[in-house]
Design a protein around this nucleic acid. Structure first.
Length: 458
RNA sequence: GUAGUUGUAGCUCAGUUGGUUAGAGCGCUGGAUUGUGAUUCCAGAGGUCGCCGGUUCGAACCCGGUCUUCUACCCCA
């Protein structure tokens, strides 16, 4: 058969892995600086842990793992005969691949509650799988980089996670816009508009504002059952761009007022404390942070703050970037209650490493040294020199010098070509003369210069 | 899941109305050059035209199915 990777999955060449590691390393560094601890969970979970957590759409996108053994024999003959997939699946697949890192984390917290100190702050950088149709910035296997804290409802964490987002994108050299909203504000809006029972429909519609425009939202709202009065109320909200304008509109909603208060406090903390920069006018984030009443986010377990980060297309040079959100997150009041553990509020964020990669690539923001880290390639002209070269490369490596040896005394032409392809900056040429004198011919590939250098100066 | 799109050499792509032996550039191998890459010149190797089936005297080309690429929905990082 013709070799191929599966739909929505990719191989990575060495240069690509190095650039991906560059992103992961920066994210990991800031996670640790902020006091988050690494954990790992299995790639497979009990399918019952995963199903029902991501909505009906999410269940369809779960990868199921077929049971081992004679699984068809153990399944109900009636369900098989009826070809009822939904009934048959749990009988023939008890495992699934994780869809995100948050639900496995909730299971982890419940299982290990006696071993963890709360508030518990964890990070994880691991792949997840979704059986989605591939598209730009969308794969079936991709990495998420999550930081979550559970066991506290302090708004300090909302502010802290915003700082964390800001710190990472600042170091990556990417100008981002961090949008914040609060699910309680949306709940309040639904209440005022008389749509408390179908808040999901309402948020899905207004979430599309920047994509389909005001008229589109009105149409969508009506299709989803909003009456004229409700549409008017919602439009009033969509025209507001800051918290102070929204507050009076929610005066009659307890939950709405609570959401406003939470966000106001969050913004206050961010603006007052965020930047370590001493100059007062430069306080605040390096990236844009704004309130966005249309920000909804699909995951239905969010209950408080909601985050979404996108490339700032108003920033110089970034205007042409077309990419969805590159990070997101939010607060969930009771994620662990589905696993039988109450009163465990949490808040977390997730970086979409694949999308960040695509954006950095498009903007040429990867540093040059994120490619080849080999310092020397040794090439030998005869067998005696090769034996000598193996000794030399061994000693260099013992000293921590990144060095490699061409494994045979081939034609110099061929070996130089190999060195060029490897992208190594310097080549050490070893012939009988070099073996005799201990002075090696070292060629700098960029300039073409060549000098005699002894071992200790390599 | 819906709609469209793509697939020809290792890579990027030509390929006329269905007609003899399917081409180019880059890359690869060898040589000019047995101690010098990226630049020059010469030669060579490399193909189940995604896969399965159909129409036809004859299919890379037409038809059906399937897989895959990219894109718009749905949803999402």
């Amino acid at each position: 058969m013709k070799p191929t990777t599966l739909k929505g999955t990719r191989d990575f060449l060495p240069a690509e892995v190095r650039r991906r590691d560059y992103i992961f390393d920066i994210i990991r560094k800031h996670f640790r600086t902020f006091g988050y601890q690494p954990i790992e969970t299995p790639v497979m979970e009990d399918l019952r842990t995963l199903t029902g957590k991501y909505g009906e759409e999410g269940d369809k996108l779960l990868f199921k793992v077929l049971n081992n053994g004679d699984f068809l024999n153990k399944a109900s003959a009636a369900d098989l005969a009826a070809k009822d997939s939904n009934k048959v699946i749990p009988q023939i697949a008890k495992r699934g691949l994780r869809y995100d890192l948050t639900v496995p984390f909730a299971r982890y917290v419940v299982m290990h509650q006696n071993d963890l100190a709360f508030p518990f702050k964890r990070y994880a950088i691991m792949p997840v799988w979704r059986a989605d149709r591939p598209q730009k910035g969308r794969y079936q296997e991709f990495y998420q980089c999550d930081a979550d804290v559970v066991g506290s409802d302090s708004l300090l964490y909302e502010a802290e996670l915003t700082q964390l987002l800001d710190a990472v994108f600042t170091e990556l050299g990417l100008k981002a816009v961090i949008r914040l909203n609060n699910r309680k504000i949306l709940a309040g809006l639904a209440e005022i508009a008389g749509m408390a029972d179908n808040m999901m429909d309402m948020t899905i519609a207004i979430d599309k504002l920047d994509k389909i425009g005001e008229d589109g939202v009105v149409k969508e709202l009506k299709e989803r059952g909003a009456d004229a009065g409700a549409v008017d109320v919602i439009l009033q909200f969509l025209k507001t761009s800051n918290l102070d304008d929204v507050a009076p509109l929610l005066a009659d909603s307890e939950v709405g007022k609570q959401g406003i208060a939470e966000l106001q406090e969050t913004f206050r903390l961010i603006k007052k404390h965020l930047s370590p920069n001493p100059s007062p006018e430069e306080r605040g984030t390096k990236n844009r942070i704004e309130f966005d009443v249309t920000l909804a986010r699909g995951l239905n377990y969010y209950t408080g703050a909601i985050y979404e980060v996108a490339v700032d297309t108003d920033a110089p040079g970034q205007g042409n970037i077309k990419m969805g959100s590159i990070a997101g997150g939010g607060r969930y009041a009771d994620l662990t209650s589905i696993f039988g553990m109450k009163n465990m509020p949490g808040v977390g964020i997730s970086f979409g490493a694949e999308r960040i990669y695509d954006v950095l690539e498009e903007l040429n923001l990867f540093p040059a040294d994120a490619s080849e880290d080999l310092q020397y390639l040794l090439v030998c002209l005869d067998d005696a020199a090769l034996e000598h070269g193996f000794g030399l490369v061994s000693r260099l490596r013992a000293r921590g010098v990144h060095a490699d040896l061409y494994p045979s005394a081939a034609k110099l032409n061929k070996m130089m070509k190999y060195a060029d392809q490897r992208g190594v900056p310097k080549v050490v040429i070893i012939g009988s003369e070099e073996v005799k004198t201990g002075k090696y011919s070292v060629k700098t590939m960029n300039s073409g210069d060549q000098h005699k250098i002894d071992e200790l100066n390599l």
